[in-house]
Design a protein around this nucleic acid. Structure first.
Lengths: 199, 199, 199, 199
DNA sequence: CATGAATGAGGTTTCATTCAT
DNA sequence: AATGAATGAAACCTCATTCAT
């Protein structure tokens, strides 16, 4: 087996584990569930990961990294007026939603299943949420600065509120069979709500 | 042991279980953890509950019931204008926040720990969320009807969005050492956001 | 089951474990070997001991304590001449041999099986040997002082040598079917060797 | 790979295995520990040995052979008086000690680690000890015959006793950082003890 | 009702060994 | 010969639950 096949098998384990963790639960997912589904021996699992929590952590960390990239790529300072702000908002939520739609396990794993994982990984997820909130807050602050958002708003709490709205939108998309159409509705609804609410 | 003492011990088990499930996790909480903390034999537990998941379900169902009462008590038709709407909003969120502040375990158990419970109970929680969303939607529809909310709003999605905002507010309150002061800030911020966003 | 029966079962586990550890090996002895021989479930074992190494340590520590008592009871200063010294030597080796003859597992467990146990217990055994050697050395030093032993002897090395002779005697007794007769021969032989060699 | 390289690799495996068995334990030493230290694949191990216990047995048998040679080389009949006897004693213990000092793993492996080996190899070690004791006994018998040792001694037990003394001396040397100086002290001490005790 | 000893299903992990390349 | 992926027997340990006292 060459390097490529080895990497492929590692990936297969990751994907199967990810599916099962999302379907069941960290605890209810047995190593044998993963290996049975792959048609390999349970011992093989341990040639690729040290233990169960190892794969889990790997999956979650991958998700965290992917989301952080979105926040780092964007620049809150680009909009100069409400129209540009809306465009930025639309672009950003669209990208975020796409990431979650693409990997339907992401939402469950990140928001719920990680609960039972070790404290360390929970902290990292918490940090991710904080990052997202601070990111939104910068947007709002910039808007206030540029005068296209009201100066009276409570930027910190509103940032959190927006994070909450977005989370529910994600949940809604995940439960829907045709998420792409629903996505458009959510993007419009959210941007209207935010802009009319804050400007 | 009389009926009263029996009921009291049952309650004590529920409370201790509730605390531990919130502190640790359903899986990480052992029957012996509960009974040890109560200073009773672990065998005694089984005189009050059939098994571990039994107490857990009981706790979650209690929470569900308690929250449903809030929604059933209120009447979305009472407001005739934006000012009355705001008052109703303030009253409602205040009451909701109080319930969660009073029992600090509620948030964690309902939103995260319940994940590991059986499918049936998860469905009930999902239903609770739906109930809440429909309840909010009725509010919005009434407002549109009475013309103090814009007719262009997507009532269904906005109801979900508001549920998301509220959830994040709860999370924020739970993490705060002085939730009562923060509560006021959230109530104002939320009602401003909602009213300015939708009216 | 009362306290007495509980203690009895604990003792039964210790004895069976002790026998098996001596028969086989720490590693080759499985928890199920112990419980099968006792006709109990393997789970029961864990109601009495935390784990395998727990019983093992318990057994070894019991042995160490028992032997230390022998050394602490005796007083190296009692003899004033070679005859008294011989008597003391005879009494002491006799007592030591009896302890090992009484529990035939002691020798193997202490000298060989403990090898595979944790480092801590190995250190304790090493300490026991050092204690024994220092104890013998005091005897020799007292003898030199009282002039019934040669002043030219290397007390430290001779003490070790005597420990070695005694160990081999023990091994020989353990392998013999009629250890009591052989014991007398060893006691005479050892005391002659020591006294004629050092006085 | 030619015959020479093959033999060299086999030897390298033996040496590394020997070191690890002495450092840790038979059980605690994994095949991969051996191969990792050698920088080869663990599969390669099985081109040189059938299994784990195979190397172990090989090592122990090598030690046994080496020690037997010492006993076979010497002739107990060479001394005619106490002085010659002492010289022979000194020469012999010196040689024995040197063998063990040269390969510091030998003592541990032969006296303790071999415990976990199969019954067969344990019997061989026991036989080696018996050989050593019979060898010493012949010395003593010859001394009694030539009248430079007391006729009253219990040659059989004294031979064992001397084996025990020698073993402790070895142990002491192994634990010491400067074994060569200590060796001289032990040789003097042992020969004095033996000669004065038995003659 | 209370107790706590006993049970055993069930899970995780290790590692010697095999074997196709 | 060398490699290292795959295998699976085998062991440890947990803990919910039962039940006799």
């Amino acid at each position: 087996m060459g390097k490529k096949e080895t990497a492929a098998r590692r990936l297969a384990i990751i994907h199967t584990a990810r599916d099962l963790f999302a379907e069941k639960d960290y605890y209810k997912t047995k190593i044998s569930d993963i290996t049975n589904r792959l048609g390999i021996s349970h011992g093989t699992f341990y040639n690729y990961f040290n233990n169960k929590s190892d794969v889990f952590t790997h999956i979650i960390k991958g998700y965290i990294k992917r989301l952080e990239e979105i926040f780092l790529k964007d620049n809150p300072r680009l909009s100069n007026n409400a129209i540009e702000f809306r465009n930025q908002l639309v672009r950003l939520t669209n990208e975020l939603f796409d990431v979650f739609i693409e990997d339907q396990n992401m939402y469950d794993l990140l928001f719920f299943r990680a609960e039972v994982a070790g404290l360390e990984i929970k902290k990292e997820i918490k940090k991710l949420f904080k990052t997202a909130e601070l990111f939104i807050e910068k947007y709002l602050a910039h808007g206030v600065n540029k005068k296209f958002l009201k100066s009276s708003i409570d930027a910190s709490l509103n940032a959190k509120a927006i994070r909450g709205m977005t989370t529910v939108a994600l949940e809604d998309l995940m439960e829907n069979d045709a998420p792409l159409q629903l996505k458009e509705r959510w993007i419009i609804s959210l941007s209207n709500f935010i802009i009319d609410g804050l400007s």
